[in-house]
Simulated scan of single mutants.
Amino acid sequence: MKIKEIIVVEGKDDTTAIKRAVDADTIETNGSAIDEGIIEQIRLAQQTRGVIIFTDPDFPGEKIRKTITNEVAGCKHAFLSKEEARPKNGKGIGVEHASVKAIQEALEAVKEEMEAYVSDITFDDLINAGLIGGTDAKLRREKLGLHLKIGYTNGKQLHKRLQMFQITKEQFLHAMDVILEEEQAQ
């Protein structure tokens, strides 16, 4: 599988994992303190070939994703679940630990960032679905992010991410139906 866009990852081990799974070029941020030189490389990549941000499903990875999104418009996003990014020994989390299949599936399900989209999903919809507040809210957000392939977010960022990836109310409600059916089956 050949990827036209340049994939932004956190480090060398992530590049190695990506190259095991697909034929692609990468830019490494080398941590969450991204300097202006790296941002300029990402801007150039976005102008010439496009960019896919593929960071670890943890706080530093989300910080990198947010920094790049704020600086470079129109990036695409690939996400792994925490389970897919966890090594067999259970220590750590990262793209470098994901299987070839998980990486390929994440890249096939890339989401494109869109501007000026107003979702018909309201904040009240999120509260009523048990995604904000309550004992199971975090778990439900994790399941929703996995089902919609938009990654995990906290309650505050969920509405923004649903808009950013133009998730329709129909897609949202379908995903919630699946999640609620799974919960009832347990």
Rank of each mutant, 00 (worst) to 15 (best):
K2G: 03
K4G: 07
I6M: 12
I7E: 03
V9Q: 01
G11M: 00
T16E: 12
K19C: 10
R20G: 08
A21Q: 04
D25N: 15
E28I: 13
S32P: 02
S32W: 02
S32R: 03
D35R: 11
G37P: 11
I38K: 14
I39L: 12
I42S: 05
I42E: 03
I42R: 07
R43W: 06
I52E: 04
F54Q: 06
T55M: 14
T55Y: 10
D56Q: 14
P57Y: 10
F59M: 14
G61E: 02
K63A: 12
R65K: 13
K66G: 06
C75S: 06
K76L: 08
L80V: 09
S81Q: 10
E84P: 05
R86S: 13
K88C: 09
N89R: 05
I93A: 01
I93S: 00
G94H: 01
E96D: 12
H97K: 08
A98D: 00
S99E: 00
V100D: 11
A106M: 11
A106N: 10
A106S: 14
V110N: 09
V110Y: 11
V110T: 13
V110A: 13
K111G: 08
M114G: 15
E115C: 10
S119R: 01
S119H: 04
F123P: 11
D124H: 11
D124N: 14
L126F: 07
L126W: 07
N128F: 04
N128T: 06
A129K: 09
L131S: 02
L131F: 01
I132E: 04
T135C: 03
A137Q: 05
E142R: 13
L144Y: 01
G145F: 02
L146G: 10
K149S: 12
I150W: 02
G151T: 01
G151D: 01
T153R: 02
T153I: 01
N154H: 09
N154G: 07
N154T: 05
G155D: 00
G155F: 00
K156P: 02
K156R: 12
L158N: 00
K160W: 08
L162A: 07
L162W: 06
M164T: 09
F165W: 06
I167E: 02
T168H: 13
E170P: 02
H174S: 15
D177R: 15
V178Q: 11
L180E: 14
E181G: 12
E182K: 06
A185F: 03
Q186F: 11
